[in-house]
Simulated scan of single mutants.
Amino acid sequence: MRALVIQHEHVSAPGLVGDRLVQRGYEFTLLTVVPEERHHTPDVRFDFPEADGWDLVVSLGAPWSVYDETTVGSWIGGELALLRMAHHLGIPVLGICFGAQALTTALGGTVEAAPRPEIGWTGIDTDDPALIPPGPWMQWHHDRCVPPPGARETARNTVCTQAFRMGNSLGVQFHPEATPAVVRRWVDFGGAEQCARLGIDPEELVERSRAMEPVARENAYRLVDAFLDRVVSPAR
């Protein structure tokens, strides 16, 4: 089974989600859209592959906004077209944070600034804990999804929709892939300044992520398993 994993920049790795996909028999192709040397000037040119031929598409997080034309306008249209066509062809899509925002945009929803940023480990309210466990989940975002018409919201908190499902595609606003190493990179590549503006100690956040690793791994594996077993291949 072949999975296409869209890594928008070198900082945000597939982490725990990638680990579980490999354990479940997926061979994934990792596409990095913005090279490391362009991290702070991400308006690069990038040609996305065709949607057909993949068994699964995963779109990871990014520090930018889907609607920021000056930052991602050179390549976001190609990604939206890929996600839209994958969904049209019945190829399951898992969108994570920025990837969820790209998915909702591709399918007719919108993305807007959240009433406040979310950074840190938080619980969520879920209608289907077997699919979307209540967490705690790692959050790091300043935008939120307005899910497309026909989508079913499956989890939320006071800030935003935390998960939505449309057909055999799933978007989650939180970061099930996050490992301590990933959080460390987020902090080092601009996240420390964001934390400081919100009164968050970035080093405490990294330590908290280390302490949360066993729980985070269990929750991430449960989510990936449920996605593959219930959303990608539902019992008939």
Rank of each mutant, 00 (worst) to 15 (best):
R197C: 05
G123C: 09
P133R: 01
R144F: 04
Q162D: 08
N168M: 07
G199R: 12
R208T: 11
R156E: 04
F189L: 06
A192C: 11
P214D: 01
F164D: 06
V206F: 04
P148I: 02
E204A: 14
L198I: 15
E213A: 10
G95Y: 15
A192M: 12
A113N: 06
F189D: 07
R217M: 05
C97R: 15
R185G: 00
M166A: 12
R152N: 10
G109Y: 12
I200Q: 11
L170C: 10
A151G: 11
P134K: 07
T122S: 04
E218W: 03
F98P: 06
Q162L: 04
G135D: 02
N168W: 08
D143N: 09
D201P: 00
P202W: 13
A155L: 06
H141G: 00
T105F: 05
R144K: 13
R208N: 07
G90N: 15
C97N: 14
R184L: 06
T126L: 00
Q162E: 14
Q101N: 07
M166C: 11
F174K: 03
L198R: 14
F164R: 10
T179F: 05
R210A: 06
V182P: 00
A163P: 05
T122P: 00
P147N: 01
A163V: 01
R184D: 15
N157P: 01
V93M: 13
I132V: 14
G120Q: 05
P129D: 07
P180Q: 03
T104H: 11
T154A: 10
R208K: 08
G123F: 08
R116N: 01
P149D: 11
I124C: 05
P133S: 02
G90M: 13
E204L: 12
R210I: 09
E218V: 03
F98M: 12
A130Y: 00
D127T: 08
R116I: 00
P149E: 10
A151S: 15
Q194C: 06
P202N: 10
A211S: 08
G99P: 14
L103S: 11
A216P: 02
A163I: 00
E193N: 02
I124T: 02
T122Q: 06
G99N: 13
G109W: 12
I91D: 07
R165D: 02
G95D: 15
E118N: 01
M166I: 15
E193D: 15
P149M: 11
E112W: 05
T104R: 07
V93G: 06
G199L: 12
F164Q: 09
F174H: 14
W186T: 05
G190D: 14
C160I: 03
A155I: 02
A106S: 10
H142M: 12
A196W: 11
A181V: 06
P92M: 15
P92S: 15
R152H: 13
R210Y: 05
T154H: 03
